[in-house]
């Protein structure tokens, strides 16, 4: 198996994995970073969203061999101590029900706010359309993003 050098949450890792292994499983099974979730495996639900050089990316269809030098950020590395404005807004609005999809929701929202700090409600809906919440916390997610964007 080939070896890959990865930068995840500013830390360097070396992993042995088949070239076609989606980075989702490298994170979860090899690096024990289980915050990134498996939902569908075909980039339809957004539960596996990570940042690749700051851009929201579906990790379930992204082979480890395609990462190259790009920096990976996962929910575990979004902030030092869980105080990213979105993480705080998620608590303010008590967003989660089951909570399983929320890491992916936060990562998608964080990439949105990084490129568009004051999105309109419509822009939020467009950005979040790829993330499914089966418990349907959608209105709370929207409110939390608006709150975070006002900080």
């Amino acid at each position: 198996m080939p070896t890959y050098k990865l930068t995840v949450n500013k830390k360097k890792y070396e992993v042995n994995a088949d070239a076609d292994t989606p980075i989702l499983w490298v994170l979860r099974d090899h690096l024990n970073l289980v915050g990134t979730k498996y939902g569908c495996g075909i980039a339809q639900c957004g539960a596996c969203t990570i940042h690749l050089d700051g851009k929201a990316t579906r990790s379930c269809v992204l082979p480890v061999s395609s990462i190259g030098n790009k920096a990976i950020t996962t929910i575990e590395g979004l902030s030092e101590d869980g105080t990213h404005p979105l993480q705080e807004a998620w608590a303010t609005h008590d967003v989660p029900q089951c909570g399983y999809c929320q890491a992916g929701q936060i990562m998608t929202a964080a990439a949105l706010l990084a490129s568009n700090p004051k999105p309109t409600e419509e822009e939020i809906v467009t950005a979040m359309q790829g993330n499914i919440c089966r418990c349907a916390t959608y209105n709370h997610i929207k409110d939390a993003i608006l709150t975070a964007s006002r900080k």
């Binding site: 979860r28 869980g82 008590d94 909570g99 890491a103």
Partner: peptide
């Protein structure tokens, strides 16, 4: 009284919580 989910921090920071974790 409105009381925040006791697992909120673990959920928003990606701590192992679920069966698959």
């Amino acid at each position: 009284k409105n009381t925040t989910n006791v697992d909120i921090k673990a959920i928003t920071t990606g701590k192992p919580l679920f069966g698959l974790d």
